[in-house]
Design a protein around this nucleic acid. Structure first.
Lengths: 336, 336
DNA sequence: AGTATTTACTTAAACGTTTTAGCAATCATT
DNA sequence: AATGATTGCTAAAACGTTTAAGTAAATACT
């Protein structure tokens, strides 16, 4: 039943040639190493016949290249990261890499365990959405260094290759939309996580409201990431109590969940409150109200990250690190 | 800068012991192989000091176990599969496995290329959402067989381990809900893909409408998977033209996109048409109308699939194949 | 004291590739 | 015919583990 896996030596034996010859032919180095054309054909034919599939473990061990890109996101079940994973998969596949993933849940311990695994597996490169205490990312690459590209957010002071978006501008524009529509008092909602993208978005919010006459002090609700629902319910209650008429959410999860809560508990207010959010999940287009938001160019980001990473993998020399900031897009929808 | 990676021989050299000893200690086989406790402590301490990380390529080559589970879904960007991937990741991680994924786009060529890759990489097991022409799955495991579990759908006649849900019942119930609410003429929407789950759902639809007095013939719109939007627009137009008042969608993508189209083009009809769909994406809870749907127990399915798979990996002997059918849940929402 | 057993390690082969160095045989050149 | 170049392959080491088999020393048993 379970036949044995075919290996180079099987082909070699059947053809009465050496393993080296077979290897050179099948890895496309026949000409370069002066293997005759006839021999090459014979080898290839035999390999086809026997349905040879290289043992990548062995190859990797020998070459030191695994052909794997490690991807560490916050949560692959979050459609934003799901899409990111998909685009990264596509691009990586084009470049001849497979993707192995892990979800950190914004937890630096989980992330560091994921990164350690990647390390053990000798992935050729890592794309990572860093989390709060990301010294770990640096710490990880202490011993020997795996090419790494950050995506979505910066990591504290770490000067690494990076692909992100103009979060600040996005937040400014989202809040300006609200203000221009006449909303007077906007509250911002963010997780209690010190993440660069969230902070930039918060700064954009502060900038936007500072520019406006009849200004008010920033109102920021910091939502405990480990107890989101309960916190958010309270925060929204409080926001409405102090008569906020605009709500600015720093990412899709906060926006979506808030929408859910608002619909359940404050249905009548829905027409009066202006809600804007980062990211553009499907639901914001079909919900009532439809949510104006700032869409990040996930496909470009993902492609660019892979491109950068593969570049880094191939030219370990060129140590210049690139920090790429792509432009998001305002998606205008109704407010009622 | 780039220090060398630490290997067993480095530890052995520093301690003046053999590589074998170090290996035995670090792989927890010290007692079993009568390595002294003191030695064990020394080795472990040194490994910690030098921050040793095993080279998994080498280990895998030797042991024939990669510690990787391959996951082939239709599209990781689809939240349904994204969630599945996440639960599988969790469970696999608990069991000591990493997950490598690939998206087939329902294309048997892509799937077979993904499976070949998994094969080459000697993944220890495969969880796969099969596609239309899935002889390939069988074909793949021709030579030597990798434990495989199907998830979400069956594969033609292949008698393999499988985790899916009671699609037929779900479809029956969804359509009965519509009929009981007084909808008279229901159209079903499905992709032009011969997938067991879709077919079961379609059969459920047919069963439900057959049971009802004043019955009508099944109305099935088969949407070209490679040209979904255009086809769906036409199909919906046609359905409304022939005065269908109920729409039954066989999966989330069809439901979501149709909702989008309906909202754009037939806003006034939205209150009169009853829409029900499989899967329970977030948007169905926040949209207008909110969509009654059949939620599959994705977490259980995923867990069960991993459990089954790991079982298979560990007892190659026990050849009995298990086909598990889990129960979904009706999520009742409004229709207007 | 002499033999058997146990303890604590070491040796070395093996996993399946890749790749460098080398060896014959053939061909070209004088 | 002797020399040099070229062609077409082979041999064998190496990648870093795991693990079966072996060995020497210490301990137990008669």
């Amino acid at each position: 039943m379970t036949t044995k896996r075919i290996k180079l030596s099987d082909i070699a034996r059947e053809l009465n040639v050496s393993v080296g010859t077979v290897s050179l032919v099948l890895s496309g180095k026949a000409k370069q190493h002066r293997i005759g054309e006839e021999m090459a054909k014979k080898v290839i034919a035999k390999a086809d016949e026997l349905d040879y599939q290289a043992n990548i473990m062995a190859r990797s061990l020998r070459t030191g290249k695994s052909g794997i890109i490690g991807l560490a996101v916050a949560d692959i079940a979050n459609p934003y990261f799901g899409r990111m994973a998909r685009y990264i998969e596509n691009e990586a596949s084009n470049m001849g890499y497979q993707v192995m993933f892990g979800s950190s849940d914004e937890d630096s311990n989980k992330l560091s365990s994921i990164l350690n695994t990647f390390h053990s597996r000798q992935v050729d490169g890592i794309i990572v959405v860093p989390v709060e205490n990301c010294e770990l990312v640096g710490g990880m690459s202490n011993n020997d260094t795996i090419p790494t590209v950050l995506i979505d957010r910066e990591c504290n002071n770490l000067q690494t290759d990076l692909v992100c978006t103009n979060n600040f501008d996005g937040a400014v524009q989202l809040n300006e939309v609200l203000l221009k529509k006449g909303y007077k008092k906007i509250a911002a909602f963010v997780y209690n996580l010190r993440l660069s993208n969230f902070e930039e978005r918060l700064n954009g919010y502060k900038k936007a409201i500072k520019n406006v006459e009849g200004t008010f002090n920033p109102i920021v609700f910091s939502i405990d990431f480990n107890n989101v629902e309960e916190n958010l319910v309270k925060a929204l209650e409080e926001a409405l109590k102090i008569r906020c008429d605009g709500l600015f959410f720093v990412n899709n999860s906060l926006g979506i969940l808030s929408l859910k809560i608002m619909r359940k508990r404050y249905k009548k207010l829905l027409t009066k409150i202006g809600m804007v959010s980062f990211d553009n999940p499907e639901v914001f287009d079909l919900s009532t109200p439809r949510i104006t938001c700032w869409e990040q160019p996930v496909e470009e980001m993902s492609k660019k990250a892979v491109e950068l990473l593969v570049g880094k993998i191939n030219n370990k020399n060129e140590d210049k690190c690139q920090q790429i900031k792509l432009k998001g897009k305002l998606i205008l929808r109704d407010f009622q």
